[in-house]
Simulated assay, not measured.
Amino acid sequence: MVVCAHSQGSLITFAALNLLTDEEIKRVGLVTFGSQLRVIFPRSHADLAAGVRALEAARV
Rank of each mutant, 00 (worst) to 15 (best):
H45E: 10
A5E: 01
R38L: 07
A50K: 15
D22C: 06
L17H: 08
V52Y: 11
L55K: 04
L11K: 09
I40K: 06
D22V: 03
L48H: 09
R53N: 15
T21V: 09
G29R: 13
D22S: 13
S7K: 05
E56R: 09
G34T: 01
A57K: 14
L30V: 06
F14W: 09
A5Y: 00
F41W: 14
Q8T: 08
G29H: 14
V3E: 00
I25G: 07
S35M: 01
A46D: 03
V52P: 01
H6E: 01
L30E: 05
L48A: 10
A57I: 08
L20S: 05
F41P: 06
Q36H: 02
V3I: 14
A15Y: 07
R43C: 06
L48R: 11
L55W: 06
L20Q: 10
R53Y: 13
T13F: 01
F33K: 02
A16V: 12
T32P: 03
R53K: 15
M1N: 07
L30K: 09
L20T: 09
A15Q: 07
E23D: 12
E24I: 04
L19S: 15
L11E: 06
E56Y: 04
A49E: 13
S10P: 05
D47P: 06
I25Q: 13
A50N: 14
R43Q: 14
G29N: 13
V28F: 07
T13R: 01
L11G: 02
A57E: 14
D22W: 12
E24W: 04
L48E: 05
A57W: 12
A16C: 08
H6L: 05
L11N: 05
A58W: 13
Q36D: 07
A46R: 12
G9V: 01
G51Y: 13
S35A: 11
F41S: 06
A16N: 05
L11M: 08
Q8Y: 04
H6A: 04
I25S: 15
A5T: 02
F41T: 04
F33G: 01
L48M: 09
V3P: 01
F33Q: 02
A50Q: 13
V31L: 10
E56G: 05
V2Y: 09
V2A: 09
S7H: 04
